[in-house]
Structures are given as C-alpha cells and as structure tokens.
Design a protein around this nucleic acid. Structure first.
Lengths: 219, 219
DNA sequence: TTTATTTTTTAGGTTTGTCTAAATTTTAAT
DNA sequence: ATTAAAATTTAGACAAACCTAAAAAATAAA
C-alpha cells in the first residue's frame, strides 16, 4: 500500500508519541505536527478507514500492527538518510533532520535496500537511534543515561534523548557527539550536576537535565 | 523562491519541450505530463503570475530567464541524483529515472551542493546528459551521432538521444552504454543501418534509427 | 471565404488536506 | 451532583491540483 506525504507524517508522529504514552491524544498529535486538532480528527478517520489504527471517538488512538509496520519503515528510511547525510555528505549531525524529513517520503523500496547496502547496514543513525531492518526489527542497544553512571567510569556516548536543535547545539559546545568517549568524574548531590571529562578537552560540568539526556553503552 | 512538486514538474517539462520547439503548446505539454489540456491552462496562469514564463492566450508559451534558471536547477538536481544512484548505489542506468524524479524535488540547496561535491562534480549523468553547474551553466560536450561517423573509426559513446525504456533495453542487448568503446565498421546505403563492433562482443548491425540516437565524443 | 476541425480556454465540479467556529463529550472543580 | 473548563468532534469553507463538458479561438479544408 502507498501513502501520501501527509499520511506518512501522521503515522510517524503517532508512532513517536506512542513510545512515551500508551495511547495518543488529539491535542498532543496536533501539537507535534504543528497543526490544528480538527485537522487531526479528519486524518484519524482516514487512517482508521485504511485500517492503520485503533480509534474510538474522544478516547484517543494508537497504531495497530499494520500501522506500526508502516511507521517502522518510515523511521527506517529517515534514519538511513540521516546516516547517509552525515557519513557520506559530511553534514553536521544537528543539521540533517529537516532534509531527512523530505527524503524519507521517496517511496522506492529498492532505493532503500540499496542505500542500506551502500551504508553497510548501519545499526544506528547519527543521533544514536536504532535503525529498523527491512522487517521492522529494531536492534536493541543496551544503554544508560550519564545521570546513572557511577563515578570514575569511562563510557562511550550511544545516543541523546532530547534532539531539539537547542540541545544539539549545547552538546556541540561540550564537544559531545555519538561515539564520544567521556569520563564521569563526580556527581554533585546538590543539584545532580555531573563533572565530566571529554577526551582532549577540559573538564566541565553538565546539568542533571543534560546528563539525563546523554545515553552511553552499557555492556 | 520555493515551488510545489507540481509546479516543478511543469517547469521541467516546459524546459525539455523548449529544447525541440521554440514555443510550447498546451497539448504537447499535457501529453508530456500525462494530464489534461485544461489542467495545463490552469497551471500556466499560475506560473505566469509567478513571472516564470511568457504566455499569450492561444499563442503558446515559453520560460523566461527566471523560469529557465529554475528549470536548470531542477535538471541539475535530477541528473546529480541519477549519477548517485548509478555510481554509488549500483542501479542500472535504465532504472534510475523514476526515482530521480522524486528525489529532485527535495529542496535543500546545501544538500545538492554537498552531493555534487561527494560525486566529485560530475559533468554528465548516466545517460550522458550534461549536468548544469550551480549557476545553471551547462558544460558543452562535443558529440556526433553514430549515423554520421566515418567507417573504420573507433569512438566512445557519450550519450543517447532517445531515453525511453524500450531504447535503453535495446542498448543493453547490444552491450552499449555511456563510455562504451565501439568501432563503426561500415554503413549500408540501402537502409542506413550500420555495422558496429563493441569491444569484447560480436559484430552486429544497428538500424539507422538506433544509430542516430547514439552519440559519441567528437574531439 | 465560409465551413469544418483542431486547439485552447472557461466554467463548474472533485479530492486532499487544511482551517475556523460552533457543538459535543469528557474531565476537573466547586 | 452540578457547574466550569478543557479536549474533541462536527459543520462548513478554502486552496491546490486535478477533472469533464461546453464555449471560444485558431487553423485547415472545401
């Protein structure tokens, strides 16, 4: 089955909101998509008709198995393109989201299969988020937030929780990216902030809020 | 300025039709775009309003300087993506058109600039068609059709005139692609057909129609 | 030079995805 | 348990891009 750009954007957003809350509300989706609740209701009817979601009036909604599969293939396309943009074209990792947002809607499955092969079947995108495989299976990567790492331990950054431009900009200042090796020196109990040392850079202190959003490999 | 996918498709098609006839007609454009004349008239009004073309009711139309510049940037994007699909992803050259048709509408100029750099500033796409540079300048590649090559001469294929799937399929059978070296053995005056020899393949005869559509470097 | 044919345009309608404003339902507060 | 507030849906409109059918203009034929 084939979907319009708009439908795909709705499906993807519902998928992402579902990660946090079991069932998604009209308002939250409207907010996520920067549109109006009335528009959301319209589209929901359509997606329900296409049998992509469970939806009861006034009661919220969530993707069904089919909808989830579609969502995963969109997420897959998005993250493969992000990987491509960073590793092949040399984009900064905080600049690729908008472009991948457009590229993800190009619908050739053969294209994505060949792109995946060209990139050598990467497991994660430049933000450390896992890339679903052809069957929608998401590689599980064990990770913990820096806020939970014991002092004196050296770890490697695997992903970041909040991917807002503001956050990404801040991380750049701290010289932190996916794959960055850092040492957790000590945690301040007063406000939960953490002193860290990034390889080849001066020791610095990050707020608890930031620490909670930096995930590292846990093996 | 930014254009919709539909607008871009119209602009590109007008550009291509202009290469053959000085002024484009409503019917020919409708035919090219697989749409109805009435739809073409609608869009023409819009493009005229946006000052992209000269248009007089019932008298045909053509892109003005601005329209041409826009067209060239679309053609540039299309051909760069085709190059990418063939040289990086390993697509057959006769399979890339439809996909490039979608990719060309992704509008980031930084993306195209970086793609161009990644591909090492190619001069032509996989069909041998020249790729306009950032300023819309088209590299001039001197070429002649095989129908005009003198007998016994060895030449290198630079492009093909007719790029229909039928033609591309036929060329594959003859083992002819861009960059192929071939020797023109002799021309038959009866029907204008030409005997050629492709490196590492048996001698064969191509019709005059085919010969006229195979272009080779002329230096 | 009329008449016929073809081409192009206009008029009015459809679909997709959006909107505002009003109505309805649910949830929270008194 | 009412009432107030918030969330959601419906109703009706709008723009983009398309369509069909009819009208108008240009071209070709008699």
């Amino acid at each position: 089955m084939n979907f319009s750009v708009s439908e795909e954007n709705y499906i993807k957003s519902i998928y992402h909101l579902q990660q946090q809350t079991a069932t998604v509300t009209t308002n939250s989706l409207a907010n996520e998509l920067q549109t109006k609740p009335a528009s959301v209701t319209d589209m929901l009817k359509k997606l329900q008709l296409k049998k992509l979601l469970e939806y009861q009036k006034y009661k919220g909604f969530r993707l069904n198995a089919t909808g989830n599969k579609v969502a995963l293939s969109i997420v897959r396309r998005h993250r493969l393109w992000e990987h491509f943009l960073v590793t092949k074209l040399g984009f900064d990792w905080d600049k690729v989201h908008a472009i991948a947002e457009e590229l993800e809607h190009v619908s050739s499955t053969e294209l994505i299969q060949k792109l995946d092969n060209f990139l050598n079947y990467p497991q994660t995108d430049p933000h450390g988020d896992p890339i679903p495989d052809v069957n929608g299976k998401i590689p599980i990567i064990k990770q913990v937030s820096v806020a939970d790492i014991q002092e004196k331990k050296t770890v490697v950054v695997s992903s970041v929780g909040n991917q807002s431009p503001e956050m990404l900009e801040l991380l750049k200042h701290y010289h932190i990216g996916i794959g960055t090796t850092l040492k957790v020196n000590l945690r301040f109990s007063f406000d939960g902030s953490v002193e860290i040392k990034v390889l080849k850079h001066a020791t610095c202190i990050i707020s608890e809020q930031v620490a909670k959003n930096i995930f590292v490999y846990n093996d």
